[in-house]
Amino acid sequence: MSRDTAPATASDAEPYAVPPDATAHECPRCGRPFARERHRDLHLGQSHPDLTADERAAYDAARDDEAADLRRFRIVSLGLLVLFYFGFLFLFAIFG
């Protein structure tokens, strides 16, 4: 595993495809295109150790943002699991 570095050394296809009408946020170090600034900022912090102060600040902000989104996802997925659990409990009680 070569954590999110350019993925395709062995591939016979281009690893990235940017639609012509899309804005790409490119990594200033390795050129990998991202659809969102947050993705690029996180990538910089994870894959390139020598960050400038600005990049470091952007990385930290992106991490906070990411953590907030993850918290929301966890609450939703916990809700879904509870729904699954009781849903199937009832289904088995009625039909099982």
Binding site: P7, A8, S11, A13, E14, P15, Y16, A17, V18, A22, A24, P33, F34, A35, R36, H39
Partner: peptide, 13 residues
């Protein structure tokens, strides 16, 4: 995932 990783690359990985 809102990504520019190519479809073929995703299928491969």
């Amino acid at each position: 995932a809102d990504t520019f990783v190519a479809p073929g690359e995703l299928a491969r990985r």
